[in-house]
Amino acid sequence: MSEGRVSALGGAQSQGLVNIRDIGLQGMVSLRADLAQAAKAVEQVTGVAMPAMRAITSGKACSVAWMSPDEVLILCDHAQADGMVTALSKALAGQHHLAVNVSDARALFGLSGPEGALRDVLSKITPADLTTLAPGEMRRTRLQQVAAAIWFETEAEARVICFRSVARYVFDLLAMSAHTSGAVGHH
């Protein structure tokens, strides 16, 4: 399925206070449903327990992120996203829900570097409180003018999801914020 498909910025990279890279093709499935009722189906299909409020839980092949009281985002292999949608729709048959493969409508960036620099670089462009954002929590917020979601995989590795249409804007914004002349040393 993924033949001929490219990610938004084709694996772009930027070096600075932190390293920023376009992660490449990433499967993403958006599921809207009554989360309490859908928990069993999600666990059955993804192998990951339904995350608590704002949490992102990871399993072997998938991660599941809490997006809103009635929405989760499932991160999986790009080639498996369509199969994931089918499996979810089957597991949730008869239950009001919406599962959509949004892989090619989003962009995913990876930021790696020292923890303090990571938090500084992100803090400069978002109103979210990065001091309290621990690994395992996803914060939906804005990066300057556009909506984005941020989380820490580890203390030295952060992830940013945004809409594909604003991928270049977000990448350039992150790169500018991570410019070596812009160190602030706050975190």
Partner: peptide, 12 residues
């Protein structure tokens, strides 16, 4: 009240 986030007015 839905996601517990302390959101500033620019996020709203």
């Amino acid at each position: 009240p839905y996601c517990g986030v302390q959101a500033c007015e620019t996020e709203l």
